[in-house]
Design a protein around this nucleic acid. Structure first.
Lengths: 251, 251
DNA sequence: GAGTGGTCTAGACCACCTT
DNA sequence: AGGTGGTCTAGACCACTCA
């Protein structure tokens, strides 16, 4: 719905509302009303340009806004798509990614991108209480929901606790392997979360533009002796996750 | 540091790295090295434009990127500033905003923006287990750290549990008032968190641009009888908060 | 009133995805 | 090969903040 003529420069429609917000609202309500289903592709930017009679930059502003809200996402140089629903993550439950995604009627998958032995830098050495330089397992994995990559995780494991870890199938639940193969039982979990932007190396692996908003989840798991079992950085697409915690003092 | 000539259009410096990312890196490292202290103001966009010899749109792209990362923020039509450190929020601890901000050597403040009695819409009525239309207290408050507004909260309280609530000083800890004045003791907390964009009404109260990335925290507190004491939506600036949870199965 | 960011236009070339 | 988004330019007017 073109707004007709608008003065160059200036500030938008007859109502004083910026054009890009008006377009945002149109698309948002199209999504809300189901005219654009989850996973559906939006018209191209140039198409929207001619449809609405506004400049491409303005169109893109509306699109960025919707992306920040988590309503749409882009596939690099392919197009803009409606975001699927987010998955709910509960850091107080010990079940891993694979289980809780299945519990929510979605299809998880995990790819091992790399595993290497890395000399512990200072900060990480502190976490594991080893001397800096001690070799540690570093795994990088990509996890997807319904075929869409949603997070990159970088896990550090002490090979003293899990020798020969690389010989197992690491394309599934690591927690399970550590439990069944190495008898490592997690009794304490420390979790940190904060909004972040996905920097180039992560963004490339997720096939998103660098700077896309994300959520960083840092997880440290301990066993009964207070040893660190897993030290894990998860970089999530911000529109793919929702955190839920339910705590009862009495229990 | 101007990169010299660049072809119009195209894709940036001799290294193939986009200009806006190069500028981002410059500013980011200036912040990291302390050349720009927390709270400091950046040069104006037009100043950066002449300094770097790039178009204003490109400058702004770098700025948006840094904003998404939480490194800088803007004050509407005033300028861009270096973000202060984020506050750590632990949903498993029962202490309120005022206490945990003070614990982190910062200065909190709270303003009551409005309090009104609102007929419960369906969703909210469900939460409180009352019939839709029952009048409930709605408070809107703005909370700041070191004088910078960081969150808007909308709290719903059942007046049946807290009659005459509006006669108390609501510019401080609500949890304390409910505890000491109404003997309401929270034994269970349910917390949901998700990245969001701050929509117009919230953005105006925080004095940020609509669409600024944020974090929504929804908190539901119950007493021993399972009654809902507080139902609270907190809209945070995304660069102001960091969530931390530490859970021990054994305790 | 000078300066700031906010919105907008109308072009351009490029790298990459898709077919 | 054609279309898509990604990057970039060089202007403009506006609403607002600040001194």
């Amino acid at each position: 719905m073109p707004s007709g003529l608008t003065l160059p420069g200036g500030r938008g429609g007859e109502d004083g509302r910026p054009h890009y917000l008006a377009l945002r609202d149109q698309i948002a309500s199209a999504i809300a009303m189901g005219k654009l289903a989850a996973g559906a592709r939006l018209p191209s930017e140039r198409q929207l340009q001619t449809d609405t009679g506004t400049a491409r930059g303005t169109i893109r502003e509306a699109l960025f806004q919707l992306e920040a809200e988590g309503l749409i996402y882009r596939r690099d140089r392919s197009g803009w798509y409606v975001s699927p629903p987010a998955i709910t993550y509960d850091p107080t439950r010990w079940t891993g990614f694979m289980s809780y995604v299945i519990d929510q009627q979605r299809t998880p998958s995990t790819e091992l991108l790399s595993i290497e032995s890395v000399a512990a830098p200072m900060g990480v050495a502190d976490v594991f209480r080893v001397v800096p330089g001690t070799p540690l397992h570093h795994l990088t994995r990509r996890r997807s929901i319904d075929g869409r990559a949603v997070l990159i995780e970088r896990i550090v494991v002490d090979p003293a606790l899990a020798p020969g870890l690389e010989q197992h199938d690491l394309g599934g639940s690591l927690t399970r392997i550590l439990g069944t193969e190495y008898a490592l039982k997690v009794v304490r979990n420390r979790v940190d979360m904060r909004p972040c932007a996905l920097t180039t190396s992560i963004a490339d692996m997720l096939n998103v533009k660098p700077g896309t908003p994300g959520l960083l989840v840092v997880r440290t798991s301990f066993d009964a002796e207070g040893r660190v079992i897993e030290y894990d950085h998860e970089y999530w697409r911000h529109d793919a996750i929702r955190v839920h915690v339910d705590l009862d003092i009495r229990s």
